[in-house]
Each structure stands twice: as C-alpha cells, then as structure tokens.
Design a protein around this nucleic acid. Sequence first.
DNA 1: CGAGCCAGTGACGTTTACGTAAAGGTAAAG
DNA 2: CTTTACCTTTACGTAAACGTCACTGGCTCG
Lengths: 128, 128
Amino acid sequence: MEQQRTYSISDLSREFGITTRTIRYYEDQGLIRPERKGRQRIYSRRDRTRLKLILRGKRLGFPLKEIGEIIDMYNGERGEARQLRHMCARIRDDRAMLLRRRDEIDAVLREMDAIESQCLNSLAEHGE
Amino acid sequence: MEQQRTYSISDLSREFGITTRTIRYYEDQGLIRPERKGRQRIYSRRDRTRLKLILRGKRLGFPLKEIGEIIDMYNGERGEARQLRHMCARIRDDRAMLLRRRDEIDAVLREMDAIESQCLNSLAEHGE
DNA sequence: CGAGCCAGTGACGTTTACGTAAAGGTAAAG
DNA sequence: CTTTACCTTTACGTAAACGTCACTGGCTCG
C-alpha cells in the first residue's frame, strides 16, 4: 500500500519548529517545489525529507543556495560520465571540509573538557 | 626571553585571509581590543589567538555576539561559585550542541560514502 | 618635496534569511 | 451568516556581517 501521506505547510512548520514564512521562502529560493491544489501547497513525503535535508544543511552552516545545489546534485540524474566525475570531485571537497570541521569540533570539545574539570576542581575546593 | 611579538592589522589580515575591515568590525563588536600606538592598532599574541578563536567560532556556526561571550567567559576571572556553576552549565549545553552537530556531520559523511561508491560503480560500468 | 603606501575614520551599500503587517480567499462550525 | 481557522500573495522591514567609497594622516623613497 502506497504511503501517500501529504502535509500542509503548517504541518511541516509545526513538525520542524519553523515558520510558514520560512518554508515559503525556501520555495522562493527554489529549494522545494510542492504541488498545488488550487493555490494551496501540498507537501509529499519527498518534500518533507527535502525540508529535513535543508535544515540539516543549515545546521552544518551551508548557505541556502549551496544547499539547493547539493541536494539537487545528489538527487539528480547521474547519467553522463562528466556529471559523475564532477559529482565525485564535489563529494571529495565537501568531505574534506566536513572532516576539518569535525576535527575542529573535537578540538573544542577537548578544551571544554579541560576547562570543565578546572571548574569542578575550583568548586570542590570552594565547597569544602 | 619574552615573545613580545606584535602584529599590524594587515599582518593578521594576510595571515588569516580576511580583510582589515573584518578585523575592525570585530573590534567594533567588542571582540578584540588591540592597543594603540597613536591611532594605529597594535595586536599582541593574545589578540592574535583571540582572532583565531573568533574565526574558529565562526566556522562552527556561532554568531559573533555569542563568540565574544564565550571567549570572555572562558578567559574571565572565575572566582565566585555562582560564576563557576554558570560556566559549567554553559559548557554542558555547548558540548551537547557540538556533539549533535558532530553526529550530523558523521551521518552526512556516511551518506556521501554511499553516494560516492554508487558514482564510482557507474563510472566503472560506463568506462568498461 | 611629491608619489606611493599603509593605516584610520566615517558612512552608506549589500547580501542572506527571514519577520511582520496588510489584504484577501475558502471552508467548516456555531 | 458571521466567526474561526487556515491558507494565499505582496511588500516593506530588519539583523548580521561585512563591502565599498571618500577622505585624511603619517612614512619613506627617489
């Protein structure tokens, strides 16, 4: 049986904790293209996962334009060899960046650990 | 021997690949406070590492205001217990966020691996 | 001593990612 | 039939993070 669930714009706004304005803005920027029943927007499951990807991209710090490009590329028809090679190159770049970013996060986490234990030590002395 | 090196604004702009305008803007926002020789800005080693921290904060997606707060807090006098407890709480929150972000990065990396091998497979078939 | 640099201070412009308000369409519920 | 609850478009507003421009003030090199 087909999972033919659909969502209204406010369904999605509630689910993801964003405003309808934001969702419409993403559409304006060409990031989602929901169907219409008359003027009303009807979001499919695919639209919903697209939105999820957009929000994840945002949390990773990508600008909306790039997010659109990336999602389209990763979903797009990968027919020709040129396309495929281009995609591989992009993946390598993106991965390198993400790895750098993850390393930075790890560095910060280690520093935070150090500071926290200093903190807790001071508190223990004080508290004694 | 004291490492009393100092830097001009263009030294730092070159080193970090940002414009002097950017550095001055950070000063405007209270993120760095270099000394002055007359009107000229003189940056110490501490200023330089501060700048490095700012840029790292940016790459991690923090807004400048928060970056300032965080750096100040982590450098600040941690005397009173209230302060210390506040700091521990903040560290816990920040750490949780960073961990979530790192998990997301890992998820994206895994997906990229999958897509890349698909890509390479297609290329192999085509190329054959 | 003038030309070429680098540094500094406004101050206005720009881009991104929305917020917010105005004005209205539709459909069910009281 | 009006109120309520959503939905729509249009359009101006805004905060963050700079870019850009205009003008000014030392230095120093030939």
